[in-house]
């Protein structure tokens, strides 16, 4: 195999992993605190992508400039959804949260279909097709930007959880929710805040993905299973795990695609996931 192709494939794989990390960090936070798999994650990403799309098309706001706005909007959406629906309807049962988020994803996806119709929307911004030479690879600028942003996002979340009062409360609830309640932490509120933050990450992810990708009502499916895989692989609730997991999955997908072909190559993700779990049954960075 040509060394330049191999080198370029490694770079492409890492960049791909970066875009997965954007989606996976929020999911791992939600899992770490609430101990549930948020089935609505993909459809919330889809909503955020439509948000970024319409901000660009209707209000001429560049996707990158729209990040603060989308993060705030998605935080609010997540917080309200948890408070008004998920928390109230789950009766404290984890399986029920799973079902409610599943129901929610069906509703959201079809609301999008109802209002926006089913076709894929692609956008072009001035930098969409700008290419950057990165060693042997020629990569589109938006992908490089989203890779760097995913590192920043993971670091920011890690800092927030470690250093702020809310972060400490989130950690306390994640570790021992009954104990946290006893020391006077409003556990339900922390759940809602955590869910909100997890969804807010999707606001940033959407703005970073849209310049080089497309949006359609079912676009969430593309990322959601991969994101589940990454969260479990990295160790549920671990940001560094989500980041490392994303990069491993991105690299695996890229390299197995190169060696096995793009179709059979998809099996690389499943196999590496199975293998790693057999040796680290609670993920790479489990506590």
């Amino acid at each position: 195999m040509d060394a330049t192709i191999l080198g370029a494939a490694v770079i492409n794989g890492l960049l791909l992993g970066g875009s997965y990390a954007l989606v996976a960090v929020g999911l791992t936070l939600i899992y770490g605190v609430l101990h549930i798999i948020n089935f609505a994650h993909g459809s919330m990403l889809m909503l955020a992508m439509y948000g970024a799309y319409f901000l660009l098309m209707k209000a001429k706001i560049d996707p990158y400039a729209a990040i603060p706005l989308m993060v705030a909007a998605m935080f609010a959406a997540g917080y309200v959804l948890y408070r008004g629906l998920i928390g109230r309807f789950s009766h404290g049962k984890d399986e029920n949260i799973l079902l409610i988020t599943l129901g929610l994803s069906i509703v959201l996806e079809n609301v999008a279909l109802f209002f926006f119709k089913g076709d894929s929307q692609t956008v072009t911004v001035s930098y969409s097709d700008r290419m950057v030479a990165l060693g042997p690879a020629l990569v589109p600028l938006p992908k490089l930007v989203s890779f760097v942003a995913s590192l920043v996002l993971c670091a920011a979340l890690a800092w927030f959880i470690a250093r702020t009062d809310t972060g400490r409360a989130i950690r306390a609830v994640a570790k021992e929710r009954h104990g946290a309640r006893l020391v006077g932490i409003d556990v339900e509120k922390i759940f809602a805040v955590s869910y909100g933050i997890g969804i807010a990450c999707l606001g940033a992810a959407a703005c970073l993905l849209i310049p080089s990708f497309y949006v359609s009502p079912s676009v969430g499916h593309l990322f959601v299973i991969v994101a589940f895989t990454i969260v479990v692989l990295g160790g549920m609730g671990s940001f560094i795990g989500a980041l490392v997991g994303s990069l491993i999955i991105g690299l695996t997908e890229s390299l197995s695609g190169l060696f096995l072909g793009e179709a059979l190559g998809q099996i690389g993700i499943s196999l590496i996931f199975i293998l790693i779990l057999l040796f680290r049954p609670t993920g790479i960075f489990s506590k």
């Binding site: 629906l85 109230r88 309807f89 789950s90 009766h91 049962k93 029920n96 079902l99 409610i100 599943l102 129901g103 929610l104 994803s105 069906i106 509703v107 996806e109 079809n110 609301v111 999008a112 279909l113 109802f114 119709k117 089913g118 009502p217």
Partner: peptide, 21 residues
Amino acid sequence: AQGLSLIIYGSLLILIIGFLP
């Protein structure tokens, strides 16, 4: 209308879980 059937279906799912945990 496109999507409406599954909007109702998903909503019913949520309601069932909400009222019959």
